[in-house]
Write a protein that binds this DNA or RNA. Structure first.
Lengths: 351, 351
DNA sequence: CTGAAAGCGCTTACAG
DNA sequence: CTGAAAGCGCTTACAG
């Protein structure tokens, strides 16, 4: 796009090789004004078939595509939605991004995705840059930006944020039922006769991790079991943290027959650690994850997990941001969580 | 960004709430012209510390961020690179996208990612839309767009394409060593004493699949073993195809002691199918994948796989497109493949 | 129905 | 060193 060529000579016509065509070139070719071509393209006017056809011919001849920057400047919109993702290469969030893209494309929008890398400073930088790029709206997919910041941003651009409950103008939040999901998992374990249920959390102060821990505790209490802090270990949302935390748990004096993990990746790590120690899943220890990654169905053994339909959440986020942009006040909630029982959980040994 | 407000009254000053600041507002506040502010922001001029400070103060006061569309229009560039990915939610390509983002951000560019969904028509639509949006360059991450199309696109915008060897102006291609990777895998199996080595391919006419099959065949021949078409089954790049293909292989009369899969996801499926049939990996059958997904290290057992550093490939693609844009002719190649030997492969039983 | 003109917010030769 | 002016390519009241 870098213009190394002089401006087109006024009298000249025909396509300039290597340069993209402009509205004026098309207009000259079709023998009308740029205004008319613009209106025909945007369908804001009715014209004779003949005229329409000759304009279309000119467009085709030049392979004309309206310049998005110019259009955006004139219209004050870019048809682009910024997305702040935790990680672009996460098997979990990836599905959500796909949902967002799908939901957006149907209405002529495209997502501009940036990775927050699980760091609050990065998330801020993303939002700033997205605003500078003039996106029409921003979807904050999870993350830990403060409510206050989010409300502030919502003053300059519509915002959808997932994993949080928050009320503000031009902002839609969709709370994921983390606590409920945890309760589903723990109840399932209780039903199988387990009484010593360990939990591996994610990064300690992450809202999702806090909610999931809360659900775990609550289900335990409902089941008449005291919460035992020695049965909780800290992971890092990834396999490696699952391995380390499981090893810690195993080394401590506290026994457990079931292990609930803050997400599937953590559970993968836990399974490997258990395997290394000669423990069999689910014979010796039952394991449950959270997220239900596509590959969890294909683990050995297939992993029992709490499913939150992240792809669907992505699509709803897309729908939400578009409604917000249209000036409406959407009433959209996150999809329900459900427990997918597979083969990594079984009856408590000796129960 | 939708301007529902009238244009600012000429005499007015101070921030307009809910509207983003413009260069002129900042200039007025600082008591200089817009030109000067622009030059200070872009560092194309040296000014006194005092002036600089007062301009910076004005910028801070308004929270000014230059409008990207306007800037793009004036400069003829958008600082955005289009990316055509096969799938935005693939655990494999995700890592590459992250590499691209990382490589781009360092130089002030951002990726606009679109999914080709493994379909050639979708890939075309993506490129078209990306060009219309005025991206400064496009990275085609794998995919099956024809060489001719690609060359054509390269006339209007610089292009980097991976998984292909292709020479054209303003185009950089990076061939992945698929065949070599396959040979590494098969040789490893041969070294372990295996003679009956099966192969599960991806979608039949995909270039990557073809190359990997070629490497498999070649290594076999070098090892003095005849190629046996009954030992080749067709998958779909995903776990499900791996399950199905393995079951087919098992049902056929041809015996095999090792199984090489076109990618890790296929291998995951294969392992599950083997497990279902009561076969142990690697005791009864050795399994090797291709891609070395992050989670392969955490499979049970950890999967032996051919590693192609897709993240690194992403970074190099970013570097390549930026050099192309700068008018240079980059000499960048894809990173080497290497075999990661883990626990899913072992000596041939009875050898 | 159609065109000339102004404007979107920035950058950058071109003059002082 | 700094400002006025033109221009990037489009859209859209405003006049015919």
């Amino acid at each position: 796009m870098k213009s190394k060529f002089p401006a087109p000579t006024p009298g000249r016509s025909g396509p300039r090789p290597g340069q993209s065509a402009t509205l004026r070139m098309v207009a000259r070719e079709a023998g009308v004004s740029a205004s008319t071509v613009s209106r025909i393209i945007n369908g804001t006017v009715k014209v004779s078939d003949g005229l329409k056809r000759s304009v279309e011919a000119a467009i085709a001849k030049f392979g004309f595509r309206p310049n998005a920057a110019a259009r955006g400047l004139a219209l004050g919109k870019t048809s682009t939605i910024g997305v702040v993702a935790q990680a672009i290469d996460s098997p979990f969030y990836g599905e959500g991004l796909r949902g967002i893209e799908t939901g957006l494309r149907q209405r002529g929008y495209a997502p501009l995705i940036m990775s927050g890398n699980w760091r609050i400073e990065d998330e801020e930088r993303c939002v700033q840059e997205l605003i500078a790029r003039g996106v029409d709206g921003i979807i904050v997919f999870a993350g830990r930006l403060s409510d206050a910041k989010l409300k502030g941003y919502a003053k300059s651009v519509p915002i959808v944020v997932t994993g949080r409950r928050l009320r503000a103008p031009r902002l839609l939040s969709m709370q994921i039922e983390d606590a409920k999901g945890s309760m589903l998992a723990v109840r399932h374990l209780l039903d199988l006769g387990h009484r010593q249920i360990a939990f591996i959390t994610g990064s300690e102060n992450h809202p999702d991790a806090i909610e999931r821990l809360r659900g775990y505790t609550q289900a335990l209490v409902e089941g008449g079991i005291d919460f035992n802090p020695n049965l909780v270990a800290v992971g890092d949302w990834h396999e490696e943290g699952g391995v380390r935390a499981t090893l810690e748990l195993l080394d401590s004096k506290s026994r457990f027959t079931a292990l609930f993990c803050v997400n599937d990746q953590t559970a993968y790590g836990a399974c490997l650690a258990l395997y290394r120690k000669g423990l069999s899943v689910p014979h010796d220890v039952s394991v449950i994850g959270f997220d239900d990654l596509p590959s969890s169905t294909y683990r050995l053994p297939p992993l029992t997990s709490v499913r939150q339909s992240i792809g669907e959440l992505g699509e709803r986020s897309a729908q939400g941001i578009l409604e917000l942009i249209a000036g409406r006040r959407p009433r959209i909630a996150a999809p329900d969580v459900e427990l997918m029982v597979r083969e990594s959980t079984g009856r408590c040994p000796g129960s």
